[in-house]
Amino acid sequence: MKAGIRYLVPIAALLAIAALLGSGLTHDPRLVPSPLVGKAAPPIVLPEVADPARTFDSANLHGKVWVLNVWASWCVSCRQEHPVLMVLRDQANLPLYGLDYKDTRDAALQWLAAAGNPYLSSASDPKGTVGMNFGVYGVPETYVIDKLGVIRYKQIGPLTPQVVDHTILPLVARLSQ
């Protein structure tokens, strides 16, 4: 009996380590938690995509709960996400703004004209400087920003109907109260 337990100990230890490492495999390594959640959103003062003579200033959105979607015409996952954004615009009555990340204005306008523009307005960030302040590393990214200008949620990668229905819309409803 004693000898049996002695042999079981290393096997149990092996199984425990395998379970620990195995659970690690189920996490997506591309999802890095942002340190900016719970902190003030970096200011966005950039020309608008639709009319570069006008300035997109995030200070004007103070007092509103709004959603910032980082996108680009070259971004393949954004095309996958696009129908979800269109539904969000049509159904949810949510202030959805865009940050056109490392893109050219012509390509951006062409893409919006062809696919439809889900945004109330988009800011143009051709060099990605504002994107870097937001810690953007995988387009598309989506941020929920509260009335005080604090980032309350960050989605890395395309929005899905599930994320919108179960996370974004309830959060916005709660923050808007």
Binding site: V32, P33, S34, P35, L36, M132, N133, F134, G135, Y137
Partner: peptide
């Protein structure tokens, strides 16, 4: 960079 991307 840590302030933007975390300790990662």
């Amino acid at each position: 960079f840590v302030a933007r991307y975390g300790n990662y």
